[in-house]
Design a protein around this nucleic acid. Sequence first.
DNA 1: GTTCTATGAGAAAAGGTTTTCTCATATTGA
DNA 2: TCAATATGAGAAAACCTTTTCTCATAGAAC
Lengths: 365, 365
Amino acid sequence: MRKGFLILTSVVRKGFLTCIFVKEADLTTQRARGGRVTIHDLARVAGVSVSTVSKALNDNGRMAAETRARIKRMAAEIGFRPNALARGLLSSRSFTIGLLTNDTYGRFTLPVMAGISDALVDHGVSVFLCAIEDDPALGKVHVDAMLDKQVDGIIATGKRIDRSLPVDLAGLPVPVVYAFTAGASDSVTFTADDAQGAALATAWLKKLGRRRLVHITGPEDFVSVRERASAFASEAGEGGSVRYGVWSESWGHQAVADLWSAGGPLPDGIFCGNDQIARGVVDALRERGVKVPEDVSVIGFDNWEILAEQTRPPLTTIDMNLKELGREAGLMVLALAEGRPAEPGLRKLPCKLVVRQSCGGAQTN
Amino acid sequence: MRKGFLILTSVVRKGFLTCIFVKEADLTTQRARGGRVTIHDLARVAGVSVSTVSKALNDNGRMAAETRARIKRMAAEIGFRPNALARGLLSSRSFTIGLLTNDTYGRFTLPVMAGISDALVDHGVSVFLCAIEDDPALGKVHVDAMLDKQVDGIIATGKRIDRSLPVDLAGLPVPVVYAFTAGASDSVTFTADDAQGAALATAWLKKLGRRRLVHITGPEDFVSVRERASAFASEAGEGGSVRYGVWSESWGHQAVADLWSAGGPLPDGIFCGNDQIARGVVDALRERGVKVPEDVSVIGFDNWEILAEQTRPPLTTIDMNLKELGREAGLMVLALAEGRPAEPGLRKLPCKLVVRQSCGGAQTN
DNA sequence: GTTCTATGAGAAAAGGTTTTCTCATATTGA
DNA sequence: TCAATATGAGAAAACCTTTTCTCATAGAAC
């Protein structure tokens, strides 16, 4: 065996065993790199230059079809995968985006994240998740770290459309898309269509023959609360009334107690601002001996499955299609990163009705 | 003004306005780069070479203290931040790790993620979140993408310690740390100390004077269920019995119904396998007219705040310190990435008791 | 046999940073 | 004044990939 040389790998090609000799120094280099195989290794093994390898793998340049195929085959054999850092340095595309979020429990962020990831993984894009927990300093640290890492874009997401993240994303050198959080007026923003969702819920109650409708919802300072209440009011007509409160089960309980002790005509349909309130309402009604859905239909909002499915009876509710929203936001930020233009403005995505048992009515939809 | 030159920026230094002239070609380059300022721009502005700038900013090499300070000041002025891609290419450290997860709802993953991020953001490390949803193909795609991006390490996390992710992480060129999921025997794995947590819960019930104890928990094929049950049994002594079921509220309801209709002596303390079961138990007891905590103390497991706080009364429960677990896993993967050695094996982190009202007893702890 | 074209493949530069090596100048001592 | 040393700063290579440009060879046409 040649002195100072070692066998790197042996390849069986066309039935012949070919031994590849590499200088010991090269192997040492390779060790230091963590055993990663580079395009140079592949070129050496294939007996061509690195440029030829690159062109072969990227279907660029002119070359004999046989050469291209052979190089591709050997690349697969030795497990060559191009270093995305080097690639990104050259192309100024890192195939990486950042997801900035405010939402600690992830009730909104996780489905959105799932949609983003789902849409972008096919494009080779990975997602940095940065939870900033309402802390401006932490937000800045994360944004700086993302920019240092040359993210191709940023998606900012929060819990409500009428508050912005505690960090300034204007004037960044990368595109920013907002989801469920407020952006500048000339930015691209995605949110759920609250009015349409509320109308959907109210129409469903009416379709089931309910006429004395109440909307028990969250704090009036949420713009989405006002939009839903307004849509509810116009859909419900004369019979509809709205009660504002907080986003908790106990508010649902209390609202039922208030209604049933008020002495007026009792509602036969209740549209709740979220599934937690609905859970409280359903529990309170059961405790009063009011039958759901026989006496009263209750519909929630959010389709927070882990809660909606465990309620007795399971909640019919409105789903904001958060995963789809994430998917669209992901594709949008990708488009912007690739220089494709997009019209700024607020995009409202439709909600859908999820029928379980708390309203009665057809299970099929 | 000089032809072919443009003002890049103007700097006020020592009271003098200094105009920096750059060739138009350079500016065009700059534009194409997305307006990012490089070390070359900084070197030009500071009137030194790039190597001097690099050494100044990294506190390397010999140079006049005044020069170093001046370069640092100008770097801050023009907002220079080194390109992490270029840096990573050279150092083979990307300051990036991947978090692989199985857990769609993120009940476990999100706190763990928060801990990881919290521990690593100070070290300039960002985290790729990859949800693979039990899909081996998707898992491979994500792992490959992370490796291409030269992550410094991977943290694998799941929902239970006795199942592994549907993707092979052995023999990867980067360190892997497991949290709440099974790894190879020679790997570093973190999990909560189920036995200690269960003992803590049981001891708390006993300390409150409860003697007829029941443990209502999840499926017996979970190793954590068996460990908790075993610890419960030895702590509870003669009076303790265990009922296995599923992880749902309705199982909590049913278990209470079973117990109260069995005709034997009724329990005065119930330790539940998770907060959902505890919620079901508490609701069922209230509906039977059994007072919690006066007649029966109920304690949960998980400290899933959004559920525990909304239960009536709010749940006393065991917290698995998931954020701390994430923090330790993050620091561990960082240590391994930096070549510091670590002993393989399973590390069990202690749980803590969170006192609310479902057991009675002191609010202070 | 000679010139032109087509084809295949290699050389080199670029991307932004860090590190090592080299060089020039200033300072010290004799 | 000259040599030796200390000091500050620049040049160049390296990391890995892609792309453009150039070159060599084979075949075709005259």
